[in-house]
Simulated assay, not measured.
Amino acid sequence: MPKGTVRYWAAAKAAAGISEEPYDADTLAEALGEIRERHPGELVRVLRRCSFLVDGNPVGTRDHETVRLAEGGTVEVLPPFAGG
Rank of each mutant, 00 (worst) to 15 (best):
E34F: 00
A29T: 01
N57M: 13
P79W: 05
V77K: 02
V6Q: 03
E65H: 09
L53K: 12
K13M: 13
A29Y: 00
A14W: 12
D55W: 14
R45G: 09
W9H: 15
D55V: 14
R7N: 11
A10D: 08
R68F: 00
V44C: 08
I35N: 04
E76T: 01
A82S: 11
M1V: 14
P79V: 03
G60F: 09
M1Y: 00
G4F: 10
E34R: 00
V75C: 01
R62C: 12
L28V: 00
R49L: 15
V77A: 05
G83S: 05
G84P: 06
G56I: 15
T66M: 09
A82P: 05
P58C: 09
V44A: 11
V67P: 09
L32C: 03
T66G: 00
G73I: 05
G73S: 07
T74S: 02
V54N: 13
F52L: 03
D26A: 07
W9R: 12
E71Q: 15
E37R: 14
V59K: 09
G17Q: 09
T66S: 13
L43D: 02
T27K: 07
W9D: 01
E76C: 00
G72F: 08
A82E: 00
A11Y: 04
P80M: 07
L69D: 01
E34W: 02
L69G: 02
A15V: 14
G83I: 04
R48D: 15
R68T: 08
V75M: 02
F52D: 05
R48V: 10
G56L: 15
I18H: 13
A82D: 02
L32I: 05
L53H: 13
K13T: 03
T5N: 09
E65L: 10
Y8C: 04
G84V: 01
I35Y: 02
R62Q: 14
E42N: 05
A14P: 11
E34S: 05
P80Y: 05
R7A: 08
F52R: 07
H64I: 08
G73C: 08
G60E: 10
Y8Q: 06
A16Y: 10
S19W: 04
N57K: 15
V54M: 13
L47A: 10
P79E: 04
E21R: 06
P79K: 06
D24P: 01
V77W: 03
V67W: 06
L78G: 04
P80I: 04
P79D: 02
V75H: 03
T27Q: 07
L32V: 02
L78R: 00
H39M: 06
T27R: 02
V46I: 15
R49P: 05
R62E: 15
H64N: 11
G4A: 11
H39E: 02
G73Y: 06
P40E: 01
A15S: 12
T61F: 09
A12E: 11
I35M: 12
E71V: 09
V54A: 14
D24Q: 11
A31F: 06
A25N: 08
D55Q: 15
A11K: 15
V44I: 12
G73V: 07
E65A: 15
R38T: 03
D24A: 13
R36C: 03
D26G: 12
